[in-house]
Deep mutational scan, measured.
Amino acid sequence: EEDDHMEFCRVCKDGGELLCCDACPSSYHLHCLNPPLPEIPNGEWLCPRCTCP
Rank of each mutant, 00 (worst) to 15 (best):
L37W: 08
P36Y: 01
D4L: 14
D4V: 07
N42S: 13
C47K: 01
P35V: 07
E1W: 03
P36H: 06
G43T: 07
P41V: 13
D4N: 15
N34R: 10
R49M: 12
G43Y: 07
C20L: 11
C21F: 01
G15S: 11
W45V: 02
G15C: 03
G15V: 09
P35S: 06
L30A: 13
P36I: 14
E39L: 04
P48L: 02
R49C: 12
P38W: 11
K13W: 05
E17D: 05
Y28V: 04
G15Q: 13
W45C: 02
C21V: 00
C21Y: 00
C9V: 00
L18T: 09
C50G: 02
P25A: 14
L46H: 07
D14G: 13
E44I: 07
E7G: 09
C50W: 03
N34V: 09
C32D: 03
G16K: 03
L46C: 14
L18C: 05
L37C: 05
C9D: 02
T51D: 15
P25V: 12
F8H: 07
Y28H: 04
C32G: 00
C50I: 01
C50R: 02
C24V: 02
P53S: 07
C24G: 01
S27H: 12
I40K: 08
P41L: 11
M6C: 09
C20D: 15
C24M: 01
L30G: 11
C9K: 04
A23C: 11
G16V: 04
C47S: 02
H29W: 00
D4Y: 15
H31I: 10
E7V: 13
C9H: 00
P25G: 13
E2D: 02
H5L: 06
L46V: 11
D4Q: 13
H5T: 09
D14E: 13
A23Y: 15
H31T: 07
L33R: 02
A23F: 01
L19E: 04
R10D: 08
E7T: 02
L33M: 06
C24K: 04
I40Q: 14
C47N: 05
V11I: 13
R10V: 05
N42R: 10
D22W: 09
L33C: 08
L33A: 07
G15T: 12
P36N: 02
C12H: 01
E44F: 04
L33V: 10
S27I: 04
P35E: 12
P25I: 10
H5W: 06
P38T: 06
M6L: 08
L19F: 11
C24S: 01
C47W: 00
P36D: 09
L18Q: 04
D4S: 09
L37N: 06
M6P: 10
P48E: 15
S26H: 11
V11K: 14
S27P: 03
